[in-house]
Structures are given as structure tokens and as C-alpha cells.
Amino acid sequence: TTVHLNGVTYTFPNPEEARKFVEKLAKTLNLKVEVHNGTYHIE
């Protein structure tokens, strides 16, 4: 599972880890999250 954040790409072997990371980040920084083909894009 891949996460794109400010031009940096993070790869998680575990989709659940990626989801938790994204949710925590989005909540902390009040960001918008979009998912395209299983890839998270955070703005």
C-alpha cells in the first residue's frame, strides 16, 4: 500500500498499517485524503 504525502512516497507492506497511518496523519494535520487505486494521496 502506497501513501503519497507532499511529494514523498511511503510504502507499507500491510494495508492496515497504511490506513492507520493515514487516518492518524489526516486527523492530526486536518488534511484531505483521497484514495486512487489503493494509493492514498494526502493533501
Rank of each mutant, 00 (worst) to 15 (best):
Y40D: 03
E43P: 02
G7V: 03
R19C: 13
N30P: 06
H4V: 14
N30H: 10
T2N: 12
T1Y: 06
Y10F: 12
V35F: 15
V22Q: 01
L29Y: 13
K32R: 11
A18K: 01
T11N: 09
H41C: 15
K27H: 09
G7Q: 06
H36R: 14
Y40E: 02
E17N: 08
A26N: 06
G38H: 05
K20L: 11
V33Q: 01
T2A: 12
I42H: 02
T9Q: 11
A18R: 02
L25K: 01
N6V: 06
Y40P: 03
R19Q: 07
H36L: 12
L5M: 12
G7E: 05
V3I: 05
K32C: 14
F21N: 00
A26H: 05
N14D: 10
V3A: 03
N14P: 00
K20G: 06
G38I: 02
E23I: 10
K27S: 09
R19M: 08
P13Y: 08
T2H: 14
T1P: 06
R19W: 12
F21K: 00
N37K: 04
E43A: 09
E34L: 10
T9G: 05
K27F: 12
N14K: 05
E43F: 15
V3R: 00
Y10S: 01
K27L: 14
V33S: 01
N37I: 02
K32H: 08
K20P: 00
E43V: 15
L5V: 13
E16R: 09
T28V: 12
T11P: 04
E23G: 04
V22E: 00
H4T: 08
V22A: 13
K32S: 06
A18Q: 01
E17H: 09
K32A: 04
L31F: 07
P13N: 11
T28R: 14
E43Y: 15
T28I: 13
A18G: 03
V3E: 00
V22W: 03
L31G: 04
K20S: 09
E23L: 11
N37D: 11
T1W: 08
T9K: 13
V8T: 09
V33A: 02
L5Y: 15
E16M: 11
K27C: 15
V3M: 04
T28S: 08
A18L: 04
P13Q: 10
N6Y: 12
E17F: 10
L29G: 10
K32D: 02
L5G: 02
K24W: 15
E17T: 13
N6I: 07
P13E: 10
L29E: 06
G38K: 02
Y40V: 07
H4L: 13
G38S: 03
V8C: 15
E16Y: 11
T28K: 11
K32N: 05
T39M: 12
E34F: 14
H41N: 05
T28E: 13
F21I: 01
K32I: 09
F12W: 03
K32E: 03
V35T: 04
I42C: 12
Y40Q: 03
V35G: 01
L29M: 11
P13D: 09
T39F: 06
T11G: 05
T11L: 11
Y40G: 02
A26W: 05
K32W: 05
N6Q: 07
T28L: 14
L25T: 03
F12S: 00
L29T: 06
P15F: 11
V35S: 03
P15K: 08
N14W: 04
V35N: 05
T9I: 14
K24Q: 12
N6E: 07
E23V: 10
Y10P: 00
P13W: 09
F12R: 00
L31T: 04
G7H: 08
K27A: 12
T9E: 09
N30R: 05
E23R: 08
N30D: 07
G7M: 06
P13C: 15
T11R: 13
V35M: 12
G7N: 08
K20T: 09
T9F: 10
F12L: 03
A26Y: 04
I42S: 03
L31H: 03
P15H: 11
A18C: 14
E43R: 10
F12T: 00
V33P: 01
H36D: 04
A26V: 12
V8E: 07
K27W: 09
L31I: 14
V8R: 13
Y10D: 00
P15I: 08
L5Q: 02
E17K: 11
G7C: 15
T39S: 14
T39E: 15
A18I: 03
H4K: 12
N30G: 10
H41T: 07
E16H: 10
L29D: 05
H41I: 14
E16W: 11
R19S: 05
